[in-house]
Amino acid sequence: MALTLKREIRSLPLSTEETDCFFAVASTTSERYYAAGFTTIGDDTHMAVARFGSTGDLDTSFGSNGIATVNVAVGAVKQWNS
């Protein structure tokens, strides 16, 4: 499969006012890929995984509008690697 690289950067605000960060990326055989990290909601960080299609757009069939989160330690602030 030919791969065309282009310089295009998109930002993805998982939460609109607090810190989000991706630390890892993984691809799938169906040309979709995942990015994993954390999002912050009310000073409480949550694990976060986003799924993108081959165009770089969020795959809205995954999680909630393309993003799955889980808050393992409720009220905590540290959930940051992936």
Partner: peptide
């Protein structure tokens, strides 16, 4: 990380005890 069967696995450090 994603598996051949499509599962997605994430590992992160979390607080041990949020009431401490």
């Amino acid at each position: 990380m994603s598996s051949p069967t499509g599962q997605i696995v994430v590992v992160e450090p979390v607080e041990h005890d949020t009431s401490a």
